[in-house]
């Protein structure tokens, strides 16, 4: 399990990194935490001609807050979200999700942006990105463009980042104060990639659902929102029965894979179970306004 030959460079600036990506003879890849890429290299499933190691770009390791948003630099590592009081105050769902993310060793190295680029359909960060409508800043030698998380992640095998681009920064809107949230995932061992994961955001006004978001992982080629279910809930009175009804809608909307972990049918079942649970928990966390 050793990688095939590749060129390796470790630039000292973003410009050098983008140049190294641009002038690679063939396929180039960004090496950040390496927690997914290096195993894939070792089993020779990916064969980039060049690896551009961005670990020297220490200024890119940041979590900063601008207006109502959190900005995540391309070297921010999973561990930076862990036990982070600011995260727990503004985006506690990220603090909750990171606890389920692999193991401490992986969290120490792996990066948020790297996880979005790898885009495992059941990984925590892509799920959070679609739930929270993350904005992605993709940079290359020829400029910067913006993507939405939903568009970016839609296809696992052809992520919107091209081989010569760098996912430089991701911005996540902080939900309004009082929004209820919940994240849960189902797996066989703590730290495993989820079989199915679910996350919800809920605002309640005047005793009714003002807005609802539902994201599911492990049920499609990438993490996805379930807008149909969200729309169904808006204006309704929160109750166990409502969440069960929402959950009941979920299976028919999914085209989950069958693999070693679970059949498509069981994934549908789990998706419904987790949907009910995340809405119930989000409701319990939501601050009721105008009642």
């Amino acid at each position: 399990m050793k990688p095939p030959p590749f060129e390796y460079c470790r630039p000292d600036s973003i410009d050098e990194a983008l140049e190294a990506l641009a002038d690679a003879s063939e396929d180039a890849r960004v090496l950040a935490g390496g927690q997914s890429l290096v195993p894939l290299l070792n089993v020779r499933q990916v064969r980039p001609a060049r690896l551009v190691d961005i670990n020297a770009l220490v200024a890119e390791r940041y979590l900063t807050y601008t207006d109502d948003a959190l900005a995540i630099g391309c070297l921010a590592r999973h561990v930076d979200f862990e036990d982070n009081p600011e995260i727990n105050a503004r985006l506690p769902i990220l603090g909750e999700a990171v606890k389920e993310l692999a193991s401490p060793a992986v969290r120490n190295r792996g990066t948020f942006c790297g996880s979005l680029c790898h885009n495992d359909p059941a990984a925590e960060w892509p799920l959070m990105a679609v739930l929270l409508d993350a904005r992605l800043h993709v940079q290359s030698a020829s400029g910067v463009r913006q993507e939405t998380a939903g568009g970016w992640l839609a296809d696992r095998h052809s992520p919107a980042v091209a081989p010569r681009e760098l996912l430089r920064r991701v911005e996540i809107g902080v939900p309004p104060p009082g929004a209820g949230w919940s994240f849960t995932e189902f797996n066989r061992r703590p730290g495993d990639v989820a079989i199915v994961s679910a996350a919800a955001l809920l605002t309640i006004e005047g005793g009714r659902v003002a807005s609802a978001r539902l994201a599911l992982g492990g049920v499609d080629r990438s993490a996805r929102r379930l807008h149909q279910v969200e729309r169904l809930l808006e204006g309704e009175t929160p109750s166990e029965a409502l969440w069960s009804a929402a959950a009941g809608e979920v299976p028919a909307l999914l085209e989950p894979p069958t693999d070693l972990q679970a059949t498509a049918g069981f994934r549908r079942h789990l998706a419904a179970q987790l949907t009910r649970r995340v809405f119930a928990e989000a409701e319990a966390r939501a601050t009721r306004k105008g009642t």
Binding site: R189, P190, G191, L260
Partner: peptide, 16 residues
């Protein structure tokens, strides 16, 4: 063999 790595051949881990 579909389970040729420790990701797919699951061993018990400490939290279990």
């Amino acid at each position: 063999l579909a389970t040729a790595s420790m990701m797919d051949y699951r061993l018990p881990t400490a939290p279990l």
